[in-house]
Design a protein around this nucleic acid. Structure first.
Lengths: 205, 205
DNA sequence: TTGATTCGGAAATGATCATTTCCTATAAGG
DNA sequence: CCTTATAGGAAATGATCATTTCCGAATCAA
């Protein structure tokens, strides 16, 4: 029998779940982010989520299943926050600045030290787990495509140099963003990361 | 009693070591790079190094000791190769291009998938092991300082725009380089990474 | 109320992990 | 040639790991 995904759980028969799945996944995101997939023991997770192993396994099937659910939530939550920021910015250049600032903010201090689940997944499981590797590839591809669209938008509205290769510029920005996440693991001040976000705009000239 | 570091082992009394420490560490680098610290089991390492657990522990004290030795060798070997490339390039700009090409080459194909031990150490152990975290910080700092010196050199020889903030530009380049390592974990073609290395030169204008 | 169904949770399970032990082999120093 | 010291290696060790089992509790459909 295959357990229903936590998100699709309908209110059928049986005892209702007593914990909030979203909140539990948020905590799993934190644990997996700072310890990595293999470094996060089930005991770490049960302690952080406030669940016993039994409940955890009933809800998420597996350690791998929990990671997958946390990963998907991480990507979705982050995409939502980013979308709002991008929509609020007026020009193509401003939208890209918003993306850079978002990453700068998340890469500084304690959150920066905690790190990025996508980067962690890439480093920990890219060679070992093909399904997770595919999700990492997908997440980066979506990111890159969105950046390319923003570059094209900026070129259309005159805030980004028209002669630039939009695809290449997007890929460069992606490297800067992921690089900020790596550098941020070493504990940097906000001002430092913000200056990086500002400096990266040079790629749009 | 504290075991002598593998590199300082003198030809004293006792049975001589039958395996080549450097070669063993090269293999350990490969295993730790592609599986991560926690993902690499001792059995993986003994198989890859062609050693039994006993010999491995006699030579390197610990799994952690082996990682530390592999990490140091990785950083040193890479610094040597990089230094040679940088010295061969004529101008400040050309030297930075050489660094970017070096990372582009290492970030493509199978080597790219294998990944970088510094990035892996940062992701896996930045929050858990303060000594390893310090080495990661150090490795990135050295990298950044060298880049800053190259930017200043390029500004002196007229191949890099003089008004640029050398420290900021170096930090941006560092992000691009580390970002290439992350992106490279998803399996990219050489041409793609080479184009990134080329595009990043825009940061020097 | 009754059965079906799922959850919460403590305890048990078997696998795997890092590490050690013990013994033999091989060298240098006296 | 004997002591000292280290390496090689198979097997054992204890810890920890992911996972399962079992049982009481809670809910729904009838």
């Amino acid at each position: 029998m295959i357990a229903a995904p936590a998100s699709t759980r309908r209110a059928g028969p049986g005892r209702p779940r007593e914990f909030d799945t979203g909140l539990a996944l948020d905590r799993a995101i934190a644990v997996f982010s700072e310890r990595g997939y293999h470094g996060a023991a089930i005991s770490d997770l049960t302690r952080a989520l406030g669940l016993t192993a039994g409940s955890l396994y009933k809800a998420f099937t597996d350690k791998r299943g929990l990671f997958l659910a946390a990963f998907d939530r991480y990507v979705a939550l982050r995409a939502d926050r980013l979308r709002a920021l991008v929509e609020a910015a007026p020009t193509g250049r401003a939208k890209i600045k918003a993306v850079l600032d978002f990453y700068a903010s998340d890469s500084h201090g304690l959150d920066g030290r905690r790190g990025c689940l996508v980067v962690g997944g890439a480093v920990d499981l890219a060679t070992a787990d093909t399904e997770i590797a595919a999700r990492v590839v997908g997440a980066l591809a979506v990111n890159e495509d969105r950046l390319a669209a923003l570059v094209a938008l900026g070129q259309a509205d005159g805030t980004i140099a028209p002669h630039l290769d939009a695809a290449l510029t997007a890929r460069l920005l992606l490297c800067v963003l992921q690089g900020m996440r790596v550098v941020g693991k070493t504990g940097r001040e906000w001002a430092e990361m913000a200056a990086l976000a500002d400096g990266a705009l040079k790629l749009l000239d």
